[in-house]
Design a protein around this nucleic acid. Structure first.
Lengths: 338, 338
DNA sequence: CTGAAAGCGCTAACAT
DNA sequence: ATGTTAGCGCTTTCAG
């Protein structure tokens, strides 16, 4: 019971079974190298002492390990939980284990978890970078640890990456809104240091330009936190402004959820007064009070593919995959016939 | 670049800086014990070699560690992500780190992660048990590792636990439905080996009995997977049956989401034809096509409290907290005036 | 098939 | 203030 007691070690087991530590190690790692009788005796000792092998010592000696780490931006966002599941399923198939951490979009937290993973000798890390530079990840790779960029196109050829074309996604959403006749569009977005946000903005502006509009005039960007409360804040700001936009594009569905809620409370009808488009097409998007138009990303596949690259190992040539997003049109953006 | 190269060690740093390994270890762990000039030199060497200390060796030697593990039933369920956030916030305040794993309600996976955590020498584990027995957790505790039962009342006094009264929650939901005049209630539930499911059923039956009804006759239980697809399956089964219930209680909001979707597609109006109640009161519950009546649990606090107990250490007396759930009534269960 | 022994990289006495 | 050194528990030659 006392936590002060030394953990029982392989030596204790050896003593109890009347064999050497080498033999115990063998029944643990190469049971076939050991005679059935000795093995039984050792296994009995292990059970009696309820021995659990010390992973640190094992790893220190053996070096190798079958754990990989993943650092996502926000573990409470359903988009990332689904990506994570994709990773985990692929990894489990190869008997690898996943450790997940959330950077909360803070580079310091990303760095901290990265160091923690590296100190614990993970085989590799899959990370959604928080900042513009990936130098720190290149450094990790230099030290022989696999790196796969998650939901982020690689700026260098040597690092594998899986991404979804966010510029296209932003354009898809915006073009749709233009097609519906909107000329002034609000964009509830996160800070541009987050690549996804910068790219979706870029796409929106491009769609506007392609349609012959002036992006600076037609697009009203509001920077908000990337959750439901952010959507609430953003809409409040818009409602106070004069010259209110007739359409709102939200950088993710959580923000859209908050936007929808706030518009409803303010008595603004969606889509009649304001059209709304989200991003990610999370499970609940279709079931909201007003079913939400959204940009769908292959989140499960994104994770699975990344895990796949990770398992290929550091020797395999780097790969770069960019998936295409897809617009799913629902009621929140389609004005009823006049 | 080559992954085959030995990781650079504290000895390499010492050599480069022209000091002993002890000194390097000191600048790493007790910088004040070392003169500013030497410290600078060592820090320079660390930077030049981009040295990252080997956590396994460190831990093997030092024993202590500031990592704790959490094993939840289903990481894609918003309920558990919020519990996890609560844990993490509390832990971060004390500079502890959290490793999260999802058992997917499979005892084998729970056992596997438990072993993994133990092998890696975590300070403690917080787990939502998958099975009826917690003997394996008691064994872990015997070995000096902290154990806190998460979302599960402890069957023994010696193990700390945080829980929410699920019997009460089930009763709250059911009584509400009875108050609305329903006499035949369907319960889309998971398998009874999951404690939460068994308890909520127990609560439902108790509420029925208290109201003078025969639980066996008044309650139609349908066992489904605990996600949106489960809700879909469950409702399909109910729609095919004759003598269709007029109210449906779902064991969680994900199931309720699927139920709502399926009812709508089948042209069944909620709440006019069928009343619906969920469980967890996740963020989107209030924003659904039909705002969902649900049983709210203090998920963030649940996690924070558990983390708190964990940090108290193995020596502190065990604590047992049971939170009370709360019914949040919305449109999905309140029949409009006739 | 089994045992003895050499480290893996680090921390924490203990010396100097 | 800095250096020296003995292990932490395990895996893995190498002998027997």
């Amino acid at each position: 019971m006392s936590p002060r007691t030394r953990r029982t070690s392989i030596a204790d087991v050896a003593r109890r079974a009347g064999v050497s530590v080498g033999t115990v190690s063998n029944v643990l790692n190469r049971p076939d190298r050991v005679s059935p009788t000795t093995r039984e005796r050792v296994e009995a000792a292990i059970a009696e002492l309820s021995f659990v092998r010390n992973g640190s010592a094992r790893q220190l000696r053996a070096g190798r390990i079958t754990t990989v780490g993943a650092i996502v931006l926000d573990i409470s966002n359903p988009f990332f939980t689904d990506v994570t599941r994709g990773i985990e399923e692929r990894l489990t198939a190869d008997d690898y284990t996943l450790m997940v951490a959330s950077s909360d979009r803070e580079p310091e937290r990303e760095a901290r978890y990265l160091r923690l993973f590296e100190e614990h000798g993970v085989r590799g890390v899959m990370v959604v970078p928080t900042g513009e530079s990936i130098d720190h990840l290149l450094a990790v790779r230099e030290r022989g640890i696999g790196v796969v960029l998650l939901d982020h196109p690689s700026p260098v050829d040597s690092v594998s990456s899986v991404a979804v074309d966010d510029v296209l996604g932003g354009a898809l959403a915006t073009r749709h809104l233009l097609d519906q006749g909107h000329t002034r569009i609000a964009f509830l977005n996160g800070t541009h240091s987050i690549r996804q946000c910068a790219d979706r903005l870029e796409g929106a502006r491009r769609a506007l330009a392609d349609a012959g509009r002036d992006p600076d005039a037609a697009l009203v960007e509001v920077t908000v936190p990337l959750d439901a409360n952010g959507g609430e804040t953003g809409i409040r700001a818009l409602l106070e402004a004069d010259d209110r936009p007739t359409a709102v594009f939200c950088v993710n569905d959580l923000v859209a959820l908050g936007a929808l809620r706030t518009l409803r409370r303010a008595g603004v009808s969606v889509p009649d007064d304001v059209a709304l488009v989200g991003y990610d097409d999370v499970t609940f998007a279709a079931e909201l009070a007003t079913p939400l138009t959204s940009v769908r990303q292959p989140r499960h596949e994104l994770g699975a593919r990344a895990a796949d690259m990770m398992l290929r190992g550091t020797d395999a040539p780097a790969e770069h995959v960019v998936f295409k997003p897809e617009l799913v049109v629902r009621e929140s953006s389609t004005t009823r016939a006049p």
